[in-house]
Design a protein around this nucleic acid. Structure first.
Lengths: 189, 189
DNA sequence: GTCTATAGCTAGATAGAC
DNA sequence: GTCTATCTAGCTATAGAC
């Protein structure tokens, strides 16, 4: 067992970057090899099932990051619900580099990607809804209000990422996060 | 001058469908030829500059449709501002097939597409902002409120398209359009 | 204007040396 | 575990007959 030239986690990070920027079909194995600093054959050694397995590993790794850095923060009973929400929103800003990077779900949700990764994308989105609904309930919203608010939160995050990218204005993203916080904490807008 | 086998407008419609579903890099010339019912060489006869020119023509054609069916409706002084807004929102639902089809800007806004079509995408988005700001002003919002509202409208439309697609629930899109209408007409939410 | 045929290249994937 | 070299299939694009 020879030691790896590049750590598994660094490989995943590089793969994630390429899939986010170029999408599933736009990301070529040459792109992926170059980004990871490995040759194509070495990438295949790590992922014998090929490109699809690389994208699946990326999705799994992002989901894990989100669970550890966002959902678990929302559920952390040591903090007040207000603090949890604020911390989670600031981690969301980290996840998307303040609006500069796209959502991996979106990047992989063109026709081919959606067919290949439907389950992971779908269940990943459901978790966002569940966790944001729960924090809404803890902030004293009614159950159906909390569900609407969670859905609205996802819509605004995704929309702000698209609009701030296509209009090349990342303030749009940070303003949207601020608006979400205000709505949860002050019940208006 | 031999008569064309397929009308120019039908070719554009088919090309649009493929680029929306698969994105720029995911759309192969084989896909495009099959969808238009033309052979690859015939497509090159119509678009001598190749695939990039096809996507540019698609963008131009969509922008024209939006101008004629959405922006001009918003500006139609024969109708009240309320009627104009309602009509425009219902045309938006047509544009996206009630949430089943994606936005062409989004489909072409991965790295490569955004580099190639930045100008058209950027100016297209600006027009949405301008037109929705104007209808807000006509509905008696202050100028800066109207701008915020226009931006929020774009964000929600784009976000609802992403979320309703990734969660496979197109009600999300129609509910969002309803919410936008309510906010413009009744000044809450 | 449309087609068949094909050029030249890059894609994803594999074999086998080290 | 990583590499060079290579396979086949698909890609964008073009030539030239009809």
């Amino acid at each position: 067992m020879r030691p790896p030239k590049v750590l598994e986690e660094d490989v995943l990070e590089s793969l994630t970057k390429v899939f986010r920027e170029k999408g599933y079909e736009g990301a070529s194995l040459s792109d992926l090899a170059e980004a990871t600093n490995l040759k194509k054959a070495s990438l295949y050694h790590r992922f014998p099932k090929g490109k699809q397995a690389m994208a699946e590993a990326v999705l799994q790794n992002v989901n894990k990051w989100v669970q550890e850095n966002i959902f678990s923060v929302l559920q952390n009973e040591i903090l007040t619900p207000e603090e949890r929400l604020k911390n989670a929103l600031s981690q969301i800003s980290v996840l998307y580099s303040a609006g500069e990077e796209t959502c991996i779900f979106r990047a992989l949700s063109m026709r081919v990607g959606l067919e290949l990764f439907e389950e992971q994308i779908n269940s990943g989105m459901q978790l966002w809804i569940i966790n944001f609904k729960e924090i809404g309930i803890e902030l004293n919203f009614e159950e159906d209000e909390a569900l609407d608010l969670a859905l609205q939160t996802l819509i605004e995050i995704q929309g702000a990422l698209v609009v701030s990218r296509t209009m090349r204005d990342k303030n749009i993203f940070s303003q949207t996060l601020q608006k979400i916080e205000t709505r949860y904490l002050h019940r208006f807008l």
